[in-house]
Nucleic acid binder design. Structure first.
Length: 393
RNA sequence: GGGCAGGUUCCGGAGCGGUCAAACGGGGCAGACUGUAAAUCUGCUGGCUUACGCCUUCAAAGGUUCGAAUCCUUUCCUGCCCA
């Protein structure tokens, strides 16, 4: 593949590349480039938003370049201040290592493990003496650091910035020197840190890395960035049916984004949107759970939602023995939500929202009277809402 | 340190002694329609109650009053201006 063709693939879906010209020049060198991607193993829960840079890294890998996955075991104990409005609590070393392992397990569902070099930045940072650190710091000015938007905002807002937080960009920059990175990949929130890498490489007489910034993935609502705290995420550890279902609920516009950023593919505008969405959901589910689970999730979705055949669908199962003693429609519904989905609904909500609207159905029969007595037999299917149903056994 | 404006239910934002569980908008949830899409429409959105009603909420603590989110005092916090 020509450098020009590679460039086109590699810049697709990116938010910013500094610069495309330099990237093209590097591609023309004809040798495998060293592509750095650094992760902070600060949280064990990984969602699809985190996989966007990995997808780009894989593209580089497929084109024959060397992926270098940097585990920020050392920097994680500081906490990246990027985009943060408060100082992050430091993690213990054990937490960091455990998180790192979880992370790599997930990452290799996307990356080719055998062709990925893993490095830990503790390997060099732990060896630095105080005088080395001072020397490193002497190359970056306070003014440069203060250009950062999040630092600036915190100063303006009168919020504290601890001195060690200023070290973070310097350290990330130094990682690039140690790795001799040709390219660094990261989210747009990493732009500043990645640029520091260029400065330090220049100081060290190295060629400067090209910075590839990727957009932050929108969450399921299509508006806010994907984040656990917004509840709009798809976790890579979500159960196959959950993952499939969540992906089916995205809007058409968002689907095109997901194609681009999660699959590295372009959505064919000629196809039927629902078919395209099922294909997206199946591919992603298969990636994390295997092809078998992927197609099973699709089949189950079809029986449950396309054919609306709840009886044949795979549902959470509740034993008859655990049913509440005073069984009526209201207590049954409350029990279903609580036992199968861990959702605590108030009686008022159950009555007004779920029962009287006809949302609650037993084997297809609407149960609209909260106080009506019900009897449940094995095999009965209780539909609580469009998205929630259980089977009794 | 001085002056001014504020802190209301998930968010924004009305209310400024009783008719306030608190307008309106957003968000969320449920239903209809659909492709678990979008758009649209309907309902719900503190808790308990079939309901009458009761209970807990309007930064915190006290107080005035038959009665307070609304008035007074103190405390905490926020924004703007001056030094």
């Amino acid at each position: 593949m020509t450098p020009e063709e590679q460039l086109q693939i590699l810049t697709a879906g990116t938010a910013k590349v500094l610069s495309e010209k330099e990237l093209l020049e590097k591609l023309r060198l004809g040798r495998p480039l060293r592509i750095k991607f650094g992760v902070d193993p600060t949280a064990p829960d990984i969602h699809f938003g985190h996989t966007v840079p990995l997808e780009k890294l894989r593209q580089f890998q497929l084109l024959g370049h060397q992926a270098v996955l940097l585990i920020g075991d050392f920097t994680a104990t500081i906490g990246d201040p990027s985009g943060r409005s408060v100082t992050r609590p430091p993690l213990t070393r054990d937490e960091v290592l455990a998180n790192a392992e979880t992370y790599t397990d997930q990452a290799f569902k996307i990356l080719d493990k055998d062709k990925t070099e893993i490095v830990y930045n503790g390997d060099w940072f732990r060896k630095l003496a105080y005088e080395d650190i001072l020397r490193l710091n002497s190359r970056v000015t306070l003014q440069q650091m203060l250009q950062r938007e999040d630092f600036r905002n915190r100063i303006e807002a009168g919020q504290e910035i601890r001195l060690h937080e200023l070290q973070y960009p310097v350290m990330q920059g130094w990682d690039s020197v140690e790795i001799r990175a040709d390219v660094e990949i990261g989210g747009t929130d990493q732009l500043f840190n990645m640029l520091v890498g260029r400065d330090l490489q220049k100081e060290e007489g190295q060629a400067q890395q090209v910075v590839v910034a990727l957009p932050l993935l929108e969450g399921l609502d299509g508006v806010k960035k994907m984040s656990k705290s917004y509840g709009n995420y798809v976790g890579v550890n979500d159960a196959p049916n959950d993952m499939f279902g969540k992906l089916m609920s995205v809007s058409d516009i968002l689907m095109a984004r997901y194609y681009q950023l999660l699959l590295g593919e372009t959505l064919d505008p000629a196809g039927h949107p629902m078919e395209a969405k099922k294909a997206l959901a199946e591919k992603l589910t298969s990636r994390y759970h295997g092809a078998e689970a992927g197609s099973a999730a699709r089949e189950d979705w079809d029986t449950r939602f396309s054919k609306k055949d709840l009886a044949a669908a795979e549902l959470p199962e509740l034993p008859l023995a655990d049913l509440p003693a005073d069984l009526n429609v209201l207590s049954l519904t409350a029990y279903g939500f609580k036992a199968a989905f861990a959702l605590e609904k108030s009686n008022g909500e159950l009555r007004k929202q779920f029962i009287t609207t006809g949302s609650v159905q037993l084997n297809g029969e609407k149960l609209t009277d909260p106080n009506a007595a019900v009897s449940i037999a094995a095999g009965d299917v209780l539909k609580l809402s469009k998205k929630h149903a259980v089977r009794f056994i």
